[in-house]
Computed example of a mutant assay.
Amino acid sequence: MPETPTAPAVRPVGSALSAEDGKLVVLARGARGRVGAVEGAAVRDQDGRTYAAASVALPSLTVTALQLAVASAVAAGATRLEAAVVVTEASTVDGAGYAAVRDLAVDAPVHLAAPDGTVLGTVSE
């Protein structure tokens, strides 16, 4: 079984998010809240299109919200991501979701937000 990648540490946000990244927080919170999921996530592609998803946990399938948001973007034709947001009670971004974002963008910020929408920090490398 392949090892799950780990995401780098989240660093505190130095300034307010851009309006576009703020929209991703709203979309991720909505995706999480609609189904009462553990996580919600949203990504923005190279054309400014956004994709939101919630985590899925079934007996036969487990997908993080960020993995699903990235998969939705790719399925719609995205070839690059500009930014991503994960809304969760966790203090870190999941490694598998982070790796999926990095498959499409080595420098896109990945913001971590609490369920109330407070941005806790950003991972960007």
Rank of each mutant, 00 (worst) to 15 (best):
residue 7 A to K: 02
residue 29 R to M: 14
residue 20 E to N: 12
residue 10 V to D: 01
residue 23 K to W: 08
residue 38 V to M: 14
residue 18 S to W: 14
residue 10 V to L: 05
residue 20 E to R: 15
residue 41 A to H: 12
residue 7 A to C: 10
residue 24 L to N: 02
residue 26 V to H: 11
residue 40 G to Y: 11
residue 18 S to E: 13
residue 23 K to P: 00
residue 7 A to Q: 01
residue 4 T to L: 15
residue 13 V to D: 03
residue 26 V to F: 14
residue 21 D to L: 03
residue 23 K to F: 02
residue 33 G to I: 00
residue 33 G to C: 02
residue 9 A to G: 02
residue 26 V to E: 15
residue 30 G to D: 11
residue 11 R to S: 05
residue 15 S to Y: 04
residue 15 S to W: 03
residue 37 A to D: 00
residue 4 T to G: 00
residue 3 E to G: 00
residue 5 P to N: 06
residue 42 A to P: 06
residue 32 R to I: 00
residue 18 S to R: 13
residue 25 V to R: 10
residue 11 R to A: 04
residue 38 V to Q: 15
residue 30 G to S: 13
residue 26 V to Q: 15
residue 20 E to A: 15
residue 41 A to N: 07
residue 25 V to L: 11
residue 34 R to K: 15
residue 37 A to W: 07
residue 10 V to P: 02
residue 12 P to R: 15
residue 20 E to M: 08
residue 29 R to V: 01
residue 19 A to T: 10
residue 28 A to L: 04
residue 35 V to K: 10
residue 18 S to F: 13
residue 25 V to F: 09
residue 24 L to V: 05
residue 33 G to M: 09
residue 9 A to P: 00
residue 38 V to F: 12
residue 10 V to N: 07
residue 19 A to I: 08
residue 7 A to P: 01
residue 24 L to E: 07
residue 8 P to A: 03
residue 9 A to Q: 05
residue 12 P to F: 15
residue 12 P to V: 09
residue 14 G to M: 11
residue 19 A to K: 09
residue 8 P to M: 03
residue 8 P to N: 06
residue 12 P to D: 04
residue 23 K to R: 15
residue 28 A to K: 02
residue 31 A to D: 05
residue 3 E to H: 02
residue 15 S to Q: 14
residue 20 E to D: 15
residue 42 A to E: 08
residue 13 V to T: 08
residue 37 A to M: 06
residue 5 P to S: 07
residue 11 R to G: 00
residue 7 A to T: 01
residue 35 V to G: 01
